[in-house]
Nucleic acid binder design. Sequence first.
DNA 1: GCGGTCATTTCAATGAGTGAAAGTTTACTC
DNA 2: GAGTAAACTTTCACTCATTGAAATGACCGC
Lengths: 235, 235
Amino acid sequence: MGSPSPLPAGRRQRKKALTRQAISDIATEMFMARGFDDVTVAEIAEAADVSVKTVFNHFGSKEELFLDREAEIFAAITGAIADRAEGRSITEALAAQLADHRIPAGGGWSALYDPEGAALFRRFLRTWHESPSLQGRYRLSNERLAGELRAALGADAGLAEDDVRVRVMAAMMVGVIHLRYETISAAVCAEVPAGEVERRVRAVVAEGMARVARAFPDLDRRQDAQDGRVTSGRL
Amino acid sequence: MGSPSPLPAGRRQRKKALTRQAISDIATEMFMARGFDDVTVAEIAEAADVSVKTVFNHFGSKEELFLDREAEIFAAITGAIADRAEGRSITEALAAQLADHRIPAGGGWSALYDPEGAALFRRFLRTWHESPSLQGRYRLSNERLAGELRAALGADAGLAEDDVRVRVMAAMMVGVIHLRYETISAAVCAEVPAGEVERRVRAVVAEGMARVARAFPDLDRRQDAQDGRVTSGRL
DNA sequence: GCGGTCATTTCAATGAGTGAAAGTTTACTC
DNA sequence: GAGTAAACTTTCACTCATTGAAATGACCGC
């Protein structure tokens, strides 16, 4: 499993980060092998050779052990907006990113074409899919994603994050992103062949982002005239 | 508290329904008075004079005790689509419904202008707002709402529920509906005066639905030409 | 009225999550 | 380099949600 965090200074910090990572990795492994609900925190703690309390010191809940990578994913998404090529619209950039972006524990489309990788990914999604508690926490996740999107969109258009237009656009994008997840999840769990999964995902993302673009001609493209601000977003 | 369910036949059935209602009512009352997390299921059972197990026989989880009315609300929303006036677009109908629709334990805007009602509603929202577990379950709720919207939209346009366009449109609507809730919640909890709350909600709903309309010119209006089906939804 | 069905209860567990106190390790100061 | 404070962990003891099995008693069709 990855160590995507830059190691912090200080031995204590480093040890702490290592402990955290070890717990997260072992937990992920166990969840994938046996399903979220069939693994107890006690077992995770046991396997990671720490006390149960330590697990809860690092993670606010059992669910967080599973959702540990979300920050990474969000950064990739908002990054695609901020770093897009000159003249490219937001929805285009996002569509490209979402058509390609690897999902946690996935690793891009190629992984899906490999039977090994597909099986792993299927286990991952099934785990995710089948636990109500995980599904529940997913909303909090989307809330955060919406916030980051608002920030990115606001910055891009030179509007406040809580501008109605920005809020609506972000909400729609979150909706499409969720649809994408739903599509992948349903298809992979139904053992649909990789090529078809990819096709479906691309279709949803394309349709979704095209619709967002149509709804937001005013915010979708960077207005580089004047001082880089959109001067009016009225309908 | 309401008894919105038609009483079923048979004494046993009726007793069961009464028990359920009693539990739900008492639970709601207690949650409102003391907050979701500060009330235990044991206390609810105690107050309703039933065993804890009985509570769980009627409600799958503590959260369901709070979300008991969601079916009602969803029905009002999808009903607004199906029953809209001839020639009215879906987004118009929905915007009207959402600008007005009473929220659970609310009772329309008038209730907000009454200090008593406002305080009650504020307690309700704060309860809802402050409990992570409730927020969590909210996603499942939205999932169901999306499903019902897909059904309504699909039926309206003569498309399959799982048509990409239908799915995207439903997802966007759920996004706007959630934004509306967020707006109400934030404003009411911040003790914003009722008139201003109403204004903000109407603004979000209007903007949101206008954008959805713009994104979906093909599905928004009933195409009564020919056999009532939209023949093409290509972009 | 009889036997079964069904809501409910009691009992006994499992497992998540928390607060406090105490131990251990690391970082900072003089 | 000792001494102290701060940061991590652990242990302990507890609360609470949630569930299965078995028992009770009111209700329903016959």
